[in-house]
């Protein structure tokens, strides 16, 4: 009998020896997250992604496994992030005529917006006495995660803190764009999409696709251009000051 109980208690560890449990947990948490999000009547400050991440963290804390065990398994699922990024070529191509007509205003506003997205946060954190390691983790906060991760490593920041910063930034950007565009009476889906992509990286882009296909395409454009611009400019500017 006691042997049976011991085997039973060891079950969670054996589950996480293969990636299957981590993938199942991720999918289950995501669908529960989406359901809870609907039950709470779509709170823009608490998106399904965050609900699901909290649920997974709670399950990991309850089971006798570490977050590394989960990360190792979930990496098999997040491998799809590569082809999913390439797939964004489809909405981008569909909106190409619109983008071509607007290349001049986009080129005029985007570099400045991307620079401001990093500068405001850095100035506030610096004025409040944050050390260089924290500043290096916050600098790429509006950039899509694959670019942001390599940037923060180059500048000497913490990747875990960066992922947290990306999440808070994404939620704040979604909330901010919805609130401020209503206040400024902006209804143009291209503009809302661009603002979501520039400031809220992939989380903002996901939200933009929920609004409309066009908003999503402009958000992917804003996200990729902000990523490209920041990846080139940030390391140069950073090494001028640090």
């Amino acid at each position: 009998m006691s042997e049976l109980i011991r085997d039973f208690a060891r079950l969670p560890q054996t589950w996480f020896e293969t990636p299957i449990a981590a993938i199942a947990l991720t999918l289950a948490a995501y669908f529960v997250g989406v359901r809870l999000f609907k039950l709470m009547r779509h709170p823009s400050w608490f998106p399904p992604v965050v609900i699901a991440a909290l649920l997974i963290a709670a399950v990991i804390a309850l089971l006798p496994i570490g977050v590394e065990d989960y990360n190792r398994g979930a990496a098999w699922l997040t491998l799809l992030l590569g082809p999913a990024t390439v797939a964004l070529a489809v909405p981008l191509y569909q909106q190409l005529p619109q983008i071509r007509a607007l290349w001049r205003p986009i080129l005029m506003t985007l570099p400045l917006s991307a620079t401001l997205a990093a500068c405001y946060a850095l100035l506030i954190a610096w004025a409040m006495g944050a050390p260089p390691e924290v500043l290096a983790s916050l600098a790429p906060k509006s950039v899509t995660s694959p670019i942001a991760l390599s940037l923060t490593e180059e500048l000497g920041g913490s990747t875990a803190l960066l992922m947290g910063a990306l999440m808070v930034t994404g939620i704040t950007a979604i909330f901010g764009v919805e609130w401020l565009s209503r206040w400024l009476k902006i209804r143009d889906p291209r503009l809302i999409g661009l603002a979501l992509g520039i400031n809220g990286h992939a989380l903002g882009t996901v939200r933009a696709f929920e609004i409309s296909h066009q908003a999503g395409a402009f958000a992917s454009l804003g996200m990729s251009l902000t990523g490209a611009f920041t990846a080139v400019v940030l390391p140069v500017v950073w090494h001028l000051f640090v």
Partner: peptide, 21 residues
């Protein structure tokens, strides 16, 4: 591309979990 783009949020989520720890 349609199912993959619909999955984007799901694919970002596992990276967020570590910050809670």
């Amino acid at each position: 591309s349609h199912p993959l783009i619909a999955m984007l949020a799901l694919l970002i989520m596992p990276g967020v979990v570590e910050i809670f720890f």
